[in-house]
């Protein structure tokens, strides 16, 4: 019976070869990312936070969860779903919503995940997974530090002239930054993701009716205009950060040279270098995507 089977009906639709996602696929990625990252945050909520003095050494988030999503699916929708899931599940539903501050969080996390997702072109490359995990934490924490600093800068009159204030804020942010890179970025980011992404690759996509992402695929789900928005938002926040550092730079010169200054200088150099690297990356990637979209393969 099987051997004599032959389709009689006229073939009307074939396999979808183009990679444009349809609305429901976008929605599925979004909802899945939202649910899973939301869930992982609720689980973290259950564990008590450990903090030594002002330094919180608890797990900020399970980075591997959204990282798997942006690595395996369209980064745009996965990156959008995750922070919204966090806000909804842990803040809104548990009665802990804090208004505008949530929007900051969403933008930071979205940018961090989206950029990490576009950097990871091959879901099976271990090196790219590491880069992705670290990128998420670096960008997210950098932006949140920038926001915190700018709050001080706007909130306090002539903040840069207040003795010790900028340094102390930077110090606390800096320590938190280091802790988060190690705990969230590596222990709960890169290491689990290195195992989970290959394990799920090729298994989870068919459940949503999609083809696994191939190394050469163009990053879809976001039009080029998205890149424009991303760059614009990112640049404006970076500009803010620069402005703060600039203002503070004057101050650094006045302080006597001692260990503190060295620390501050190093931090400053690292930050500036980091931002330059990031900006270059954003620029390079957006150029590459543009060129790709301009190529004749797509009409």
């Amino acid at each position: 019976m099987t051997s004599t089977y032959e389709r009689r009906g006229e073939l009307r639709g074939t396999m979808d070869e183009n990679l444009e996602l349809n609305t429901s696929q976008k929605l599925m990625i979004f909802v899945l990312s939202m649910s899973l990252f939301g869930l992982s945050n609720v689980i973290l909520e259950i564990i008590p936070d450990v903090s030594i003095g002002p330094v919180d050494i608890s797990v900020a988030y399970f980075v591997f969860v959204p990282l798997v999503m942006v690595a395996l699916f369209s980064p745009f929708w996965a990156a959008l779903g995750a922070p919204i899931g966090e806000v909804i599940f842990t803040d809104l539903l548990m009665g802990d919503f804090s208004g505008l501050a949530e929007i900051e969080g969403i933008i930071q996390m979205f940018l961090a995940l989206y950029i990490a997702g576009t950097l990871m072109r091959n879901p099976r490359s271990k090196a790219q997974i590491w880069i992705g995990a670290i990128t998420v934490v670096v960008i997210d924490k950098f932006l949140s530090a920038a926001v915190d600093l700018s709050k001080v800068w706007i909130g306090v009159e002539d903040a840069e002239f207040v003795e010790g204030l900028p340094q102390s804020i930077l110090l606390l942010e800096g320590i938190g930054f280091g802790v988060d890179i190690i705990i969230s970025g590596i222990l709960f980011g890169a290491i689990p993701a290195m195992w989970l992404i290959p394990a799920l690759y090729g298994k989870i996509e068919p459940l949503l009716g999609m083809r696994p992402r191939q190394p050469g695929d163009k990053v879809n789900g976001g039009a080029q205009s998205v890149w424009f928005v991303v760059s614009a938002v990112f640049l404006s926040i970076a500009a803010f950060f620069f402005a703060f550092l600039e203002a503070w730079d004057v101050e650094v010169g006045v302080i006597d040279s001692d260990l503190r200054e060295q620390y501050g200088d190093t931090f400053l150099l690292v930050s500036v270098a980091g931002i330059i690297v990031l900006l270059t990356l954003v620029w390079l990637i957006s150029r590459r995507t543009q060129r790709r979209s301009a190529s004749p393969s797509k009409d």
Partner: peptide, 12 residues
């Protein structure tokens, strides 16, 4: 099928 699941669809 076929609007949500895009596969090879023949007949009506």
């Amino acid at each position: 099928i076929p609007h949500y699941w895009h596969g090879e669809f023949a007949g009506s």
